[in-house]
Design a protein around this nucleic acid. Sequence first.
DNA 1: AATCGCTTAATGTCTATACATAAAAAATAT
DNA 2: ATATTTTTTATGTATAGACATTAAGCGATT
Lengths: 236, 236
Amino acid sequence: MRSYKEIRGILQERITSQQWQPGDLLPSEQALSEEFGCTRATVNRAMRELADAGLVERRRKAGTRVVQPKSHPATITIPVIRQEIENKGQAYKYLLLERLEALPPEDARIQLGLNQNEKALFLKSLHYGDGIPQQLDVRWINLSALPEATEESFADIGPNEWLLQRVPHPSIEHVFRADKATAEEQRLLQLEDCEPVFTIERRTWISGQGITYVRLVHPGSRYHMATRSSDEPIFS
Amino acid sequence: MRSYKEIRGILQERITSQQWQPGDLLPSEQALSEEFGCTRATVNRAMRELADAGLVERRRKAGTRVVQPKSHPATITIPVIRQEIENKGQAYKYLLLERLEALPPEDARIQLGLNQNEKALFLKSLHYGDGIPQQLDVRWINLSALPEATEESFADIGPNEWLLQRVPHPSIEHVFRADKATAEEQRLLQLEDCEPVFTIERRTWISGQGITYVRLVHPGSRYHMATRSSDEPIFS
DNA sequence: AATCGCTTAATGTCTATACATAAAAAATAT
DNA sequence: ATATTTTTTATGTATAGACATTAAGCGATT
């Protein structure tokens, strides 16, 4: 009697070893359940997880086929900058540069889904590791969605961390870029001439209501982003 | 009688609306199956998928708790550059710049897991959209893993696409960076002065055997990477 | 007070069975 | 021949029941 994990592993092996090649039809759940001496439900779970992992595609009646990948998937987790700095064993420092309630510019207004004359909270802050600037956080927060933000000074806690606590599971959209640094960025992040910045643009919302729109700006020479090595067996 | 998807949706709603807050204990599968008038298996699947999505954490005997997120997850798919260019409606052109079998430098040698005196295949190629360079591909391929590569000229097909067909489901590791352009990169990618490059470094392997180690270099002004907007309901 | 061992409760997985659903394939009507 | 309907089949989901596994929590012992 084999578990769904064993079965999943065996099937995965047959796929990565190309015993079953892209486009090939896998045996039906029925057939596999006989091969492995278990019920269809067990095989179903194994195959469903392989489908979740993108190894196979399943369609009713048509069966299960090995996928011909057309792209490389990558999963990233973007930690709060304080975590990242402390994990490197550096001393973390946070500095609020600007805080004001104002009418946001066109792009931020649209991203947050605000009316023409609706004010929002603007925050500019800087995060240091061992005294060296690591991240500039330039952000608009929707005050209709988060009126509590007017009460918070953000003098001691970064807006990112504050939001993560206040609005735990928003919908998220990211854009990553390599940009030329503006004069202000160059000054604040203490960049060399021509040193680029790695920017993360993030928009979060919940039930269609915009929460925050932020640009996280990092010195190119001191920052990179990596995917966790989904080591060998896709599943652990 | 409710389906696992409905249940999953209801539970997700209670979490994102903060009716259940981070740290809170959810009712047991038993209790929920009574509330929803279904079997425990159905509730189990709903909760398991919420756990996969990172909304809750489950532990035997301890129960299921709402997660206090400590980072922002992001899933990216990096398409083959030809796809990306053609999707933008641009004319794709591919040019092989260099092809030779040689001893790789230290870093590539280690990434591929080769011996001191083992040769590998080096490829340098350029991908254009509407005649404008979009990606420089600088790559080492492990010939022990892929001896067929010696027979392939790579004059007509990019190494990325060739590999994707030949080795469909490898393990992958990525690093993303904003770099200053080297003189060569500036020339090949027709960059302005001080224009940075967005680089994707990728290592792939199968069963511990290195396959390829590549640097994909993009003009910062013409390239960005985005996560698909996991719109509102995490599940569709 | 700290440690050890037992009980117990929650999740994890499996079996056997049934019906639903989508769509390919075959049969039938136009 | 082509369009339409019916059949068939693989996956999708659900039920009811069982046993496994983990670790929290309690009680007894040191």
